[in-house]
Design a protein around this nucleic acid. Sequence first.
DNA 1: AAGTTCTGGTTAAACGTTTAAACAAGCAAA
DNA 2: TTTGCTTGTTTAAACGTTTAACCAGAACTT
Lengths: 345, 345
Amino acid sequence: MERKVSIKDIARHLGVSTALVSYVLNNKAGRVSAEMAEKIRQAAAELHYRPNLIARSLQSGKTNTLGLIVADISNPFFSQIARIIEDEAKRSGYTVIFGSNDENVEKSQAILDAMLNRQVDALLIAPAEFTEPQLKALQEKHVPFVLIDRYFSDIQANCVRIDNYRAAYDAVEHLIKTGRSRIAMLAYDTGMQHIADRIGGYKDALRDNGIDFQASWLVRASYHHIEEEAATGMQQLLLPAPAVDAFFFATNSLAIQGIRQIMRMNIKVPDELAVISFDEADAFDFFYAPITYIRQSLDDIGRHAVRLALESIATSQPATPKEVIVDVRLIIRESTKNKTYATDQ
Amino acid sequence: MERKVSIKDIARHLGVSTALVSYVLNNKAGRVSAEMAEKIRQAAAELHYRPNLIARSLQSGKTNTLGLIVADISNPFFSQIARIIEDEAKRSGYTVIFGSNDENVEKSQAILDAMLNRQVDALLIAPAEFTEPQLKALQEKHVPFVLIDRYFSDIQANCVRIDNYRAAYDAVEHLIKTGRSRIAMLAYDTGMQHIADRIGGYKDALRDNGIDFQASWLVRASYHHIEEEAATGMQQLLLPAPAVDAFFFATNSLAIQGIRQIMRMNIKVPDELAVISFDEADAFDFFYAPITYIRQSLDDIGRHAVRLALESIATSQPATPKEVIVDVRLIIRESTKNKTYATDQ
DNA sequence: AAGTTCTGGTTAAACGTTTAAACAAGCAAA
DNA sequence: TTTGCTTGTTTAAACGTTTAACCAGAACTT
């Protein structure tokens, strides 16, 4: 990579001071003569000058960079959000660097450190479990950040999310209204609040509709072993014959694994088993009974997240955290079609 | 964001020079006394010192940052590669910033500029059409970069990719071997070499097997209007009754759209129409006739890309570009199952 | 005793910007 | 004629690092 041309080169080339060049190039040319300004601009163009943002950052203390931390950038849910964030950030002159924490505390800390060392102006974080201390530390350092998708009950912070309890509640109620009464749920084996809320909504919807929740209905799978654990958990509930008549999947990756199982066991959807999931996926459309799902507007999430981030960069004072709850919509399709002939027992 | 602690603070706190602190903290402590070193390390820990990588970059001329430019980071194909690249970069101490060019020349240039201004050490690029001049400009500036997935016949550059011609050829030959003779293809309406190669492989496979290619078999859709254009193109070929007995999709996003059409038209796969696609997708497994596809190892692509990038950063001399061709595998499934009863006409 | 070599540090410049403050010259007002 | 404002430009410091070069004192050589 060859020697880059700096403001100094322009200055030397024109026999003026670097200050003057800087003023002109930043349109702070309040008192610079028009001809001089023109000469400088021209020289800059001729020499193919490009500002060194690193130097600028050092001097200004701002990098115009946002750090995005998610569980796994290859998860479409996050990569779609990433895209929105990218676009939204760009229109304010910000660049995004990203990192995946793999739902792992140490990795999360490592990424955080790396981003802080790089002096990001703010962070957008879908936090992993047990990372509250890391977030508290950020707050102590007054590093602006916005939580997305995930949150902690004991952390007051900017946050963009949905009402998980309500969304789950409504989804389960939809299952009940369409004639299901033995409703299972597949969730991550985690204490994360958003999952807890989804489970809470599920249980309360059952209770409020006079169904009593059976502990065996709640199948849990750990993030790093979704496949095996979802498989065994679901098999216990569905083999030799389905002991439940509906399955509620807490996230789209759980749904993908869950539906794989259902296909493998050759269970008929929606007749033997209704299916509903959080989030979207192309795959949901390809299943013979297109999957009913809870749609979150990733657009809204991304946009609000960036907005909050930029706001808290601007008002560097620790303003009181803002929480944005974005709407969800239940997209109803074949997988939860009304039971026509009752197979109750 | 409060005042950060610098090396200077540590120095002051201990009454020593910043140089000493720097030496110790960088383990260049060749001639520093053991006690002094210990005191410095301790002070650094107490004061919660974290190196300002921006400052370090300014001084060293290296940012330890890679720029990743793809068409759209929300496309699973790219987001999966992004993840591999992230991990691979991290293990060498590099961070990744990303940008989506939306297959658009101006956006591509804008992102390139932003990344160069940020002094990335190297770029990983899945280039958009007509961006050869941008790449040539990079070469002139001796900015290290690696092309991934896409390439240009008239640009000699580091590149990690598959043998698109061969992969397409083999895929089409597979269709022929399983009894199809009227084989259509859905491709992007672009001159990009990787697509051209795929089309070339398709045509040659037909020719070499004594089938003559009908112009109407090649359906093209533009990137920004996949849905409509794929729909109308395919309808012409498939309604009222399929005029072809197989469809070859040039990418996974084309396949997703294409299969949506097939579902809508209620065409039976594989009996009425065999289907094969490039790349992977969860959705391929969920279709009632799981889709046969050409699998590229994204792992290999990501890994080699980072490796080449780091190598060309190291040997800053314009070494001769390296091209890495990664293997592909045809994953054969239901969608191309042998025709059992011939419906030839 | 004088020179040489270690040992353990310090000094100062540099990286490419920005920007407050100073300055020189011309001009207007007193 | 001094004083003071404008106008156009320069000076110099600062941002937080790194690192070559320097230096003082102690410890060896002769």
